[in-house]
Amino acid sequence: MISELEELYQEVILDHSRRPRNFGDLADAAVRVHGDNPACGDEIHLGVKFGTDGGLQDIKFTGHGCAISQASASLMTAKLKGKSRAEATEMLRAFHDLVTDETAEAPKMLGDLRLLQGVRKFPQRVKCAMLAWRAVEQALQQSAGESTISTETEFVTP
């Protein structure tokens, strides 16, 4: 059997792609970010609600795309809910390293997101994995309102 494929599409990832968590519209979202991966047509609509302490009180998404982009969004929302901005920013950086840097260790704080490490062997799929994260990066920067991002603009690690 093919190990790189199984590493990329681990059972948990396939499960999240088939039944994404936190999938739906967040009615009282403070920020809405529409994210596009024009190279493959993946789309995400991310809603984030911030708590009084500025943390990510709630986060949900809708959209469509490949298994990697859906699973990444699902796992990400599960992980980021309830986190402070500083924690979210740190995870964003750690996740980016995880999927792009061959030598990066997979830090414990990423939890199940570490299962997406297999993406680093598939450079064409990094954008799929990063789409939801690019959207959350934008959300953290603006705190309120709506905006649009695209994976075709350079990802800059915060």
Binding site: D42, G65, C66, I68
Partner: peptide, 14 residues
């Protein structure tokens, strides 16, 4: 069953 991207990645491995 599968998004075009996943399908082509899968096929490529074969």
């Amino acid at each position: 069953a599968a998004h075009p991207h996943d399908l082509t990645t899968f096929a490529d491995q074969y």
